[in-house]
Design a protein around this nucleic acid. Sequence first.
DNA 1: GTCTATAACCTGATAGAC
DNA 2: GTCTATCAGGTTATAGAC
Lengths: 218, 218
Amino acid sequence: MMPAIDKQKTIKPPNSTRNSEATKNQILDAAEAEFAVTGLSGARTEAIAAQTGVTKAMIYYYFQNKQELYQAVLERSLVGMLSMAEDLQLDCLDPDAALVTLLTTMLHCMSDNPRIGSILCLEAIQNKGKYYPKQLGNILYGTMIEVLERGIKLGVFRQLEPRHTAVSIVGACSFYFTAQENLKYLWPGRRLLGKELLQNHTQESMNLIMAGVRLVNN
Amino acid sequence: MMPAIDKQKTIKPPNSTRNSEATKNQILDAAEAEFAVTGLSGARTEAIAAQTGVTKAMIYYYFQNKQELYQAVLERSLVGMLSMAEDLQLDCLDPDAALVTLLTTMLHCMSDNPRIGSILCLEAIQNKGKYYPKQLGNILYGTMIEVLERGIKLGVFRQLEPRHTAVSIVGACSFYFTAQENLKYLWPGRRLLGKELLQNHTQESMNLIMAGVRLVNN
DNA sequence: GTCTATAACCTGATAGAC
DNA sequence: GTCTATCAGGTTATAGAC
């Protein structure tokens, strides 16, 4: 005979309607979409619940409160970007190739998840970066500044100020995504996040930046 | 004899404590600061009132509702930028000088009112540009694209795609202001909106962009 | 023109049934 | 794990006294 302990209901058919992981991810997806438009303070848990298909109470079942949900969204969005940036091994490359690689990766990440730009932008404006995973800035700007400094020293890049230039570079790459909704009229009838325009943006911003930093243009 | 129409109370001592124009401007100032951080939906009229020193009810005396106040703020912030952009007479200049002039003006406007960047960014992300003064995009991107096209035709600029490049240029110039709060750690102990760093940002982003578009660098 | 008070509504978060 | 019901607190906007 089975004792009362057997009442544990942890073992569940994975295709059950009661699926912890799936629901949690659905909530995170909807939350990401909401936070990417409104930011933390402007987001409505009701709206997130509506998009998810579950009820508002479920959000509080999986996450302690709105802030914690927000932080989970931030971490999930940026974890991919971070790990990619860390695996680049840029030291093995000459500065020019290293910068091309870094830019390609960054632009690829943002093309892959166009909400990243808005999320980071809103986080900076509204919360002064309070909920940022701290490593992000160090990794992104840190590596870029290093590459730029190396290029200047080797005479491949012109005499630029690395920090200001790094900031301008990130801006040049990310603004297309952040300001999407305002830029539509420049490409009437076309999808700004479609494959073709994304490739064009990648190519054109890379061209602008590389031509902008090189001492001698090929 | 004077009829009832005479009851018009438009004539007021300008130094009265009840000063219509002054109060209205105070409200607009406080509203600008609030909207630049929270956007339209996130802004609290209570917070605006607190910053202004008058009561919440005054806001509704001068403005019909929050949307109208928001629109008034947008227009006031951008009207200066617009009129400057219109008076530039760029057609008289060669493309290189014209782009330098346009960038200088744009960077000067944003240095002058660093909130413009955030306001426009939030408006784009949150409201999809619904409350934009429509002329703005046309003037800013329109003139820049024209200048770029002229430069390509004359062989001064390289074979770039004008629209994508214009977007990247605006991003390179504005990101410093938008992401301010996240960039502090790059310049520890210094004021990002101080005269010196603003001049550096202007110079460095101009250098990057001009080197990035020119066919032959001097 | 400026204030206080309040109406009408919305939102984050919880309790408790199933 | 998921839902319904609900509360406490906060928010827009207005009414009315001064």
